[in-house]
């Protein structure tokens, strides 16, 4: 009898084992993020070699001295990857911050005040969502300059609509709630209601999405660097891949290694993003639709 009904038995047991796998994966993702932050902070201070100097024969294959080989100018690939972390992380954190601030403010205002504020913000969001991000970023960076801070602002501007949509949805949901209305009837002003009730209760999904936004920023900035719109004064992983493309046949490691670094970082960000969405709600592409 019980057997007939609990056909789910073995799966449940499998599910019981899964959390440990999941925990391990999350721990690894956290470790990667920590490492990336440390490398970004220390930049070239702890790299084994000077990332900008030619130290060995060009395109020499991996060896004990140069575990990831050297690039077409004889620079140590490992050192350049380590140093390139800063550019990646600054762009990721910076543009996500821009997106969160702009998107949250506009989204909360639109969702709470509705009316023409909402119409204006929503139309803007729609337009920015429709316009191809990479093309927009290319246009802006090509015209306005490829300094890193320009790229930060440009990426932030291409990503804020997603934040704004999440914040707006939450504000819309909360503004009809009784405790918000009660606050309004008691005479609390609109902006204060947002700060007191709406923002604290509504920012979960926005925060959960931050990790996903950082991943998006990493991808976009790597793409920009790859097609030649990175900040030329900085070492970037995308730029390394572009530079190494000419000697692909002779020195594949100069492409494989920085790409792998990108992939590992993105895997970690996506993993943490998935977890954050599960914990804090809202968030991934399924909810954005």
């Amino acid at each position: 009898m019980k057997q007939a009904l609990s056909a789910r038995g073995p799966i449940l047991r499998a599910a019981g084992r899964r959390p440990s796998v999941r925990t391990t994966v999350v721990a690894v993702a956290c470790a990667v993020m920590f490492l990336a932050l440390v490398l970004a902070a220390l930049h070239s201070a702890i790299t084994p070699d000077d990332p900008t100097k030619s130290l060995a024969a060009p395109n020499s294959s991996p060896s004990a001295a140069h575990p990831f080989g050297t690039d077409s100018l004889g620079r140590d690939v490992l050192s350049r990857i380590m140093a390139g972390t800063r550019y990646t992380m600054v762009l990721a954190v910076g543009s996500t911050a821009v997106s969160l601030v702009v998107g949250t403010v506009l989204g909360l205002l639109a969702g709470y005040f509705v009316g023409w504020t909402d119409t204006a913000v929503s139309r803007l969001v729609e337009m920015f969502l429709t316009i191809p991000h990479l093309f927009l970023a290319i246009l802006l960076v090509a015209f306005l300059g490829n300094q890193w801070w320009v790229v930060v602002v440009v990426l932030g501007l291409t990503m804020w609509p997603v934040t704004a949509r999440l914040a707006r949805a939450e504000a819309l949901r909360l503004r009809g709630r009784e405790f918000v209305e009660a606050s309004r009837i008691a005479g609390v002003g609109g902006l204060r209601v947002i700060v007191r009730h709406v923002a604290p209760n509504g920012l979960g999904p926005v925060v959960a999405n931050a990790s996903m936004q950082m991943a998006e920023a990493v991808l976009l900035s790597a793409g920009l660097s790859y097609i030649g719109l990175g900040d030329p004064s900085q070492i970037s992983w995308g730029g390394m891949i572009q530079e190494a493309q000419g000697s692909f046949q002779t020195a594949p490691w100069a492409i494989v290694c920085p790409g792998a670094a990108l992939t590992v970082l993105l895997l970690s960000l996506h993993t943490l993003g998935d977890v954050a969405v599960r914990v804090l709600g809202g968030g991934n592409e399924a909810d954005i639709v």
Binding site: F179, A182, V188, G189, N201
Partner: peptide, 23 residues
Amino acid sequence: DPFEALDPRFTVERSVAEGLGPS
């Protein structure tokens, strides 16, 4: 709806006090 009536982050005291208004 009793589940929508109160700010989930506010204590009962804070929620009720809000009825007194900001001033």
